[in-house]
Design a protein around this nucleic acid. Structure first.
Lengths: 181, 181
DNA sequence: TCGCTAATGAATATTCTGTTCGTTTCCGAT
DNA sequence: ATCGGAAACGAACAGAATATTCATTAGCGA
């Protein structure tokens, strides 16, 4: 890929996250992003059709990073039998998220958080599908999956607001209050 | 309050909810609300500064209604001892929400859902504070409260997408997967 | 009945978005 | 080092939606 393109995209991502730390998503205009990134107007529009698409691209980039190694070995996941596998998996993801914390906090602190969470949950759904025990209970499986996914996503959101625990602790909180049924 | 003002506000709320049944929040323009409510342009702006403020006002109205009876007897709530009190409380709230289901769906199906959920969680926080057992566990109380609040809010969101269960069933799902620790 | 307040809506200003296009700059392949 | 193509540039423009202004009309309630 052309060096100029990479530089432009990166400049936009950086500018965007910098702005997200200061003000909410809907109050950020395309022009502000352009000014902050110091690029030409038409350049922005050759890379991204809309502000929404920019957000989507940024989220994709973050999650690609966070889930990269975890989802490719999806097949081998079978959390229902091995006790600690899910725990270390989750801890691992939390470490990745901690690295991207600066970006993520800004995104989560406004309506853009909605989109971020939606993406996040998509990935989590794939991850947790194997963690649900097979035996059918009185509770619908679709409810349980949604429950786990949302619970974890909200745990992360809480953690991001609240930087006072380690990935290991948070993983423990989550598993202690959610699973085991 | 002047009868005309009440009429205007009600006309706007009605128009807005009617539009929300058809399309999502972000695709509704102020002009459409004005046309649907059949009021003058400047009249809208004397009542609401922006579309966002209208949404906020509507959410307040909804929750005032949903939680009206429940929160005033807040003092007497002590779910930690009586088994079925929380259950019937929750079922009651779910019945209220079911009534407003038509337009809540519209609110939830876009970024406006973020605002709705934020409001919802504020009310839930007050409601659930009493439900947490006093005994300090290894899990921080603030984590547990956030966990319950988000879990219930997300349960409701799931239920709204997914109209196939009764309030009693949903209340059971929630209590079976969240509490008891 | 009368004074006050709300509603009206056309006109206008403003703000933001998204596109166009001729020009300039820069990359990388040869 | 050169050259063709691709990317960046940015002023200018069109279009959509928001928000404000103001003179006029209608309705409330004391």
């Amino acid at each position: 890929m052309d060096r100029r393109q990479k530089k432009t995209r990166q400049a936009v991502y950086d500018a965007f996250t910098r702005l997200l730390e200061k003000k909410s998503y809907s109050n950020i205009t395309v022009q502000e992003i352009i000014d902050e990134a110091d690029i030409g107007r038409s350049t922005f529009y050759t890379h991204f059709e809309t502000k929404d698409e920019l957000l989507r691209a940024l989220c994709t980039e973050i999650f690609e990073h966070v889930f990269s190694e975890d989802l490719e070995k999806e097949q081998t996941h079978d959390f229902s039998h091995s006790g600690g596998a899910l725990d270390s998996e989750i801890t691992h993801i939390l470490y990745h998220l901690q690295d991207s914390r600066r970006y993520i906090k800004g995104i989560l602190s406004s309506e853009s958080g909605e989109l971020f969470m939606r993406f996040f949950k998509e990935y989590l759904e794939r991850l947790f599908e194997g963690a649900l025990s097979e035996k059918t209970s009185e509770i619908p499986r679709e409810y349980l999956l949604n429950h786990m996914v949302c619970d974890f996503a909200e745990t992360v959101r809480w953690w991001m607001r609240n930087d006072s625990y380690s990935p290991e602790e948070v993983s423990h909180f989550f598993l202690a209050t959610t699973l085991s049924r």
